[in-house]
Design a protein around this nucleic acid. Structure first.
Lengths: 194, 194
DNA sequence: GTCTATACCACGATAGAC
DNA sequence: GTCTATCGTGGTATAGAC
């Protein structure tokens, strides 16, 4: 097998097992088995188990930040920007189910990997862009000023972050459709209006 | 030290460390150190590390289900019931920060403990009560019928579940105040209205 | 580049003195 | 009821043959 292909396989299988059982409950032998090589062979690709996690973090953070910046560059009005961010987060959850789940599970540990890999700025891109969009919306009068923007941000971010647990794209809705639904709930509210 | 007191201490300290590092990354020796006894002594109180987790689950699930049933018994109209549930979840997060965090971190593992301890019915009480309240709200015309109730439930539940990460009662808001804010965001929406 | 074999260590849990 | 001491297991990581 091509070395790059095998490296990719190690990352993908690891992410999947990490997501299911947690990093420290996952053994090197288990990863080797899932990849189809003996545990020792893994050390030709990564110097340690932790290095696999760090690489997963790097890929995820880099892609998310890139997509985020592409949206910011469009300079959309606040509400449209928020809908675009929602779609990005949902799509990235789908594209990186392993990394998303590990992050959810072991946020503190992942944060250590982020710091270790010098990715703090990149990792905070999405959060800062969200907070800016919400502030802009309040400033323009489109969003309520009586709700603390930080609280609103935490609520929507946690809700989005965890969609991966119950959402499978295409089954009931596409990512775009779910983004519209989530935005509608958070912006318009669940109350019926006539 | 009184045996019951020590047992309590083991549970509390364990919950705290489990929450911070995850169950499988926490060692028996570490718990012993935090409690102030040698690791072997812990086995006079619990037969295994897993049994500590199971006991934490039992306490948490029992209390949450009890509070939930007390609200259901009041037979409040849907929106008021939802606000009461919100307050319960927030309050229980505050009262059981360890159990909440472990559950968040290792949902699947906790679910196994729930099944093992024959607590499945009790553990699902809150979720079912939420779903019923939302369905009642849609049926009475107070809530929108064009949003899938299950999606709304997932969104609000995930948002509530994770407040423990950023909310400390009394600092900015009380539990009651935050419950009102969260309910307002989810029911009324974030859009400014004149 | 992957294998077999293993060093070395830390883990959960136990035994028996006090 | 807690101590010291330790068993057996299984972990990460390494060494050296092929």
């Amino acid at each position: 097998m091509d070395p790059n292909e095998r490296r990719r396989l190690i990352l993908d299988r690891s992410a999947e097992i990490f997501a299911r059982k947690g990093v420290s409950a996952t053994t090197i032998r288990e990863i080797g088995q899932a990849v189809g090589v003996h545990s020792g062979a893994l050390y030709h690709y990564f110097p340690s188990k932790e290095a696999i996690v760090t690489e997963l973090v790097r890929e995820y953070v880099t892609d998310l930040a890139g997509r985020c910046r592409a949206v910011v560059a469009k300079q959309l009005p606040p509400l449209e920007r928020m809908r675009a961010f929602t779609e990005i987060v949902l799509a990235t959850n789908v594209d990186y189910p392993g990394a998303t789940a590990v992050w959810r599970r072991e946020g503190d540990y992942m944060r250590e990997r982020v710091v270790e890999a010098d990715l703090t700025e990149l990792a905070d891109t999405m959060t800062h862009a969200w907070q800016e969009a919400i502030r802009d919306g309040v400033a323009s009068g489109e969003l309520r000023a009586d709700i603390d923007p930080r609280i609103f941000h935490e609520l929507i971010y946690d809700a989005l972050w965890h969609t991966e647990r119950w959402f499978t794209p295409g089954e009931q809705h596409t990512v775009r459709e779910l983004a519209a639904i989530v935005t509608s709930v958070f912006v318009d509210g669940m109350r019926a209006r006539d």
